[in-house]
């Protein structure tokens, strides 16, 4: 038993560019989401249908979460944070479909998103506070704390990405072990716990922490 992404082929035969199943799953997810958004955009109505109402509920929820930490800027950050919520949320559902894998079970996917949040929050910090105040923030409260502040800042994307990755992979390993003991029926309820309840809480956490990193970067 080898957890984690499986290498299916090599891009142009180059050993350094493996094509994994998680990579294919995330590309499929991106294409499906773009198609879905395109079709939904063509049929937008004043009186929403079922699918439009569901999407509106999700987006209103994400916006209210942003508003609770960044008052008055929910609409501005909705595209970025909403994309993270939708991508990670739908990729959780992907893990339940036989033959597909959860793209967030790969450290590269989660680290990519965490680095994006990290760079965006640093950019916003520089833009809102100005370069001088931004650099001065690293020397608070006294200049001796500079290495600690830099390390603390660099640890953010690591903890952010490992949390989601570890939860997804850990649940997957426990379920795989159980399938070796009881191949039928008994592991099925565990999917509800690990792949639905626990995973959706982690999606919420991932998004909330992205919001809180941005709010920490642009405030104070």
């Amino acid at each position: 038993m080898q957890p984690g992404p499986k290498v299916l082929a090599y891009f142009l035969g180059n050993e350094n560019l493996p094509i994994t199943d998680t990579l294919l799953a995330s590309w499929l997810l991106v294409i499906l989401l773009i198609l879905f958004a395109y079709i939904l955009k063509k049929r937008l109505k004043i009186v929403p249908g079922r699918i439009q109402a569901a999407v509106e509920i999700i987006l209103a929820f994400v916006e209210s979460q942003i508003e609770s930490m960044l008052p008055g800027e929910g609409r501005k950050f909705l595209p970025f944070i909403g994309t993270i919520f939708i991508f990670v949320g739908v990729s959780t559902v992907f893990g339940l479909i036989p033959g597909l894998v959860n793209p967030t079970g790969d450290i590269n996917t989660t680290l990519g998103m965490a680095l994006m949040v990290f760079l965006y929050s640093q950019y916003l910090g520089i833009k809102r506070k100005g370069v001088g105040t931004y650099i001065k923030g690293f020397f608070e409260p006294i200049f001796l704390m500079f290495p600690m502040n830099v390390l603390g800042e660099l640890a953010k994307p690591i903890s952010h990405s490992f949390r989601l990755f570890g939860n997804v992979v850990g649940g997957g390993i426990i379920i795989t072990l159980l399938y070796q003991f009881f191949p039928w029926f008994i592991p099925v309820p565990l999917h509800f716990w690990f792949d639905i309840f626990s995973a959706f809480i982690q999606v919420l956490i991932f998004g909330m922490i992205a919001i809180s990193y941005i709010s920490v970067a642009i405030s104070d």
Binding site: F162, R163, G166, N167, G170, I201, L204, I205, M208
Partner: peptide, 17 residues
């Protein structure tokens, strides 16, 4: 509570990784 618990889980996740 759930948010705090998920953040508290981080050290366990580190050791797991």
């Amino acid at each position: 509570m759930l948010l705090g618990q998920a953040v508290a889980e981080t050290t366990g996740i580190y050791s797991f990784v």
